[in-house]
Simulated assay, not measured.
Amino acid sequence: MSRRAIVTGAAGGIGLAVARALVARGDQVVLTDLDEARLAEAAGDLAQPYVVADVASDDGISALLTRADQEFGGVDLYVANAGVFRGFGLDAPESDWALSWDVNVMAHVRAARALVPRWVDGDGGIFAVTASAAGLLTQLGSPTYSVSKHAAVGFAEWLAATYGDRGVQVCCLCPMGVATPMIEGGESREESEARLGHKAVSTAGAVLDADTVAQTLLEAIDAKRFHALPHVEVGRMYAQKAADPDRWLAGMQRYRASLEV
């Protein structure tokens, strides 16, 4: 059965890969992003509608749902993929904290507020979140990314615990390094903490292509799994962290020191 989907952050990277994978399966997709030129090109290639919208705002989400209702008659799947990787070190400015919280967390909350009531009262739906391995483990160099992605995972867990038996399936994608513009060129940054953060992302494990990550998400949705882990070692690290956090933190300190050399 084909789905009616919305994918945020769909002008490139994981979002575009997810949209492409959904269309290949016969699903209908509204793509959205703030980068109008790249978004229009992506939507044109896929022959799908698009909306330029700020998905961290209620107005942006309302515009998306209105377009999906007009085009498809509803929404079965919402992929909250848009994210930012901003703010490095303890001195990260308040503006980076605010932006990270708004895009990486509150965009999910606002979308869920709009979608969950219609799904609970109707035929149900799927809420998929692109979080990060940083949300299960941590992110060296960037407190804003680490904290906001932990919160994204936490909100997804709460949503699943509260509505998972009432027709709302929740899936949380937590990759490590992915070959996207978000991490490309990171080691050339001037700030040492920014270089550390990007180096940690690119060396912690294999850097996967976005299409592989998208397929992992769709496989997890089909299997009704909460976690979608493109890097299987993340599950093992997450278990080690829970079993012995002091040992895990000591290991992270050694890893950080090795990257700073």
Rank of each mutant, 00 (worst) to 15 (best):
A5Q: 02
V7T: 08
V7D: 11
I14A: 01
L16F: 13
A17Y: 05
A19G: 13
R20Q: 15
A24T: 10
R25E: 13
D27V: 08
T32Y: 06
A37S: 12
R38C: 04
A40G: 14
E41P: 02
A43T: 02
P49L: 06
V52C: 03
V55K: 00
A56M: 02
S57C: 09
I61A: 01
I61W: 07
T66Y: 01
Q70H: 12
G73F: 05
V75G: 00
D76W: 06
L77C: 06
A82C: 02
V84H: 03
V84Q: 00
F85A: 04
R86I: 11
R86F: 01
P93W: 04
E94V: 15
E94G: 07
W97P: 14
S100F: 08
V103K: 01
N104R: 06
V109S: 04
R110H: 09
A112I: 00
V116P: 07
R118A: 13
W119N: 12
W119F: 10
D121V: 00
G122E: 00
I126S: 05
A134I: 06
L136K: 13
L137K: 07
G141I: 05
T144Y: 07
Y145H: 08
V147S: 13
S148G: 10
H150D: 05
H150R: 12
A151F: 09
A152V: 09
V153G: 05
G154I: 12
E157Q: 15
L159W: 12
A160T: 05
T162G: 07
Y163Q: 10
G164E: 08
D165Y: 01
V168A: 04
Q169D: 11
V170S: 09
C171N: 11
C174G: 12
G177V: 09
V178R: 08
A179Q: 13
T180D: 10
M182H: 02
E184K: 13
E184I: 08
S188N: 13
E190A: 15
L196G: 05
H198C: 04
V201F: 14
V201N: 11
T203L: 10
A204V: 14
A204T: 14
G205I: 03
V207L: 10
V207R: 10
L208F: 08
D209V: 09
V213G: 02
A214I: 02
Q215S: 13
L217R: 07
L218V: 08
I221A: 05
K224M: 04
H227F: 15
A228F: 12
L229Y: 08
E233C: 03
V234L: 07
K241F: 03
A242T: 06
A242L: 14
D244I: 07
D244W: 07
P245F: 06
P245L: 09
D246Q: 14
R247I: 01
W248A: 12
W248Y: 15
L249I: 13
G251Q: 10
R256N: 06
A257Q: 06
S258W: 11
L259K: 10
V261R: 11
V261N: 09
